[in-house]
Design a protein around this nucleic acid. Structure first.
Lengths: 257, 257
DNA sequence: TATAGTGCAATGGTCAAACCAATTGACAGT
DNA sequence: ACTGTCAATTGGTTTGACCATTGCACTATA
């Protein structure tokens, strides 16, 4: 009776090692990426083999892989295999979504974040934009002009315009964050309002931004971007309030029946 | 033959219908958060019940939950239950790690991102910092002074100093991104060098930043933060090069045996 | 009565085996 | 040379069981 817990104790001696098997697999993938054994576009071994290699069951491995898949790190195709994502355009989207939902992020806060990030990006883009970068930005600008009257198509080019600037900045981290925030704002906007009328004003701002970047005038590029985003935020607030008034009028009318 | 592809085309118009069950569960959780049925700290139903509610198997549900767990959205405790995270300090860490690994992100790029974000945060903090915010920042500054000579402890206060400023800015999105980048940079730094000697210089910069924020001088706060980060980057480059030289000397010595 | 110990139930964690579904690629027929 | 077909490969899902940890109520004891 007295001696009973000898091996129990030795098992308790390593309590901090308590990582889930999933986290260990994720860590392992990281190491493989770091060592160069895996890189963008690489095909992972089939799940059954990989599970055997790691000496874990296939469901356990799948759990970890699915977690990476949800984050957009890997893509799995039945019949083909599982691949490391070639580019990571949406790594921050899910986390950002949940952050916004759980913390009740004010859209103003996101506009503020976008202002800081995109003014910085515009500044960098003006310093570094190559001929190809400028061409890409210009194409989106002209796409916007052609899309006057078509709100969806216009917004599409609008997004791509800002993405082109972000890419021209040469900073992948910043451009990834920017892209996520912008995407989220456009989603919210689309939920609030379907039609927007200020095509000309938006184009004028974008013209100014493009022109400044083309001349490698970082100071002007920064100012133009700041002005544009300020105007965009005002527009958004106006649209939202209109919608809110409309809704409250509807609901009060409904209540008064 | 001429008419054939009518419905084929219409089927190609909606290729995104391919959702896995995992993504549907994640989507469902999002909806529950949006509707207010779940909020920060909420306890989810036990897996067995939840699986039955959603009419899916428990492993399938678990896969989705584990994905959220890896992202830091939920915490699961055996015997207790699964809970929505009360705060989300680390939502961006995993995605950022993988982005850095896959895209071979240059540390200079991260310093650049940090410069843009933190100068913006310092500016906002100077405008908005409350008495409590200032107190929190000051405490970390004094902690740094007490920790002179103890690199690890010093860096700890250094991180918290910047986090305190981020919180004072009132912008959770930006502060989350900043925190992730800073964390990653400190990790890299810790791998490269164990001892740093410029305690006094670092403290001088932090003093300037704190002072500017305390006086609500946003322009000076911004400049001080920019100067500090510039100096920090130079230090990092110097340390890295020293380590690289040391390594290359070692390896060439090894080769010449 | 209060407190500490003990055991049971609830809950998350893992595994095994089997089957389904989609894709790919080789093979046969034209 | 082209095209349709079928089988092998591979990811997707389920069922069922068992283990490990925690929480809590119950009980024995001071």
């Amino acid at each position: 009776m007295v001696v009973s817990s000898s091996h129990d104790l030795s098992r308790r001696m390593a309590p901090i090692d308590r990582f889930g098997i999933t986290e260990l697999v994720v860590q392992r993938i990281k190491e493989l990426l770091e060592s160069g054994a895996l890189k963008a576009g690489s095909r992972l071994p089939p799940e059954r083999e990989l599970a055997e290699m790691l000496n874990i069951s296939r469901p356990s491995l799948r759990t970890a892989l699915k977690a990476l898949s949800v984050m957009g790190i890997i893509n799995a195709k039945p019949g083909a295999g599982t691949f490391i994502a070639d580019s990571l355009p949406e790594v921050f989207t899910e986390p950002m979504h949940f952050m916004a939902l759980i913390h009740n992020i004010d859209p103003r806060e996101m506009f503020e974040a976008r202002r800081i990030i995109e003014t910085g990006l515009a500044e960098l883009a003006a310093e570094r934009a190559s001929a190809e970068d400028l061409q890409a930005i210009k194409e989106q600008l002209e796409g916007m002009k052609r899309a006057i009257g078509n709100t969806d198509q216009f917004l599409e080019h609008d997004i791509h315009f800002h993405q082109a600037i972000a890419r021209a900045s040469g900073n992948k981290v910043m451009s990834g964050v920017m892209d996520t925030i912008a995407q989220l704002l456009y989603e919210m906007r689309r939920q609030v309002v379907k039609r927007t009328s200020d095509f000309e004003e938006a184009i004028a701002w974008h013209e100014r931004i493009y022109d400044a970047i083309r001349r490698h005038d970082s100071k002007r590029a920064k100012e133009a971007m700041a002005g544009h985003l300020h105007a965009a935020e005002l527009t958004w607030v106006r649209e939202t309030k209109a919608k809110a008034n409309y809704n409250s009028r509807r609901s009060s009318r409904r209540r008064s029946r």
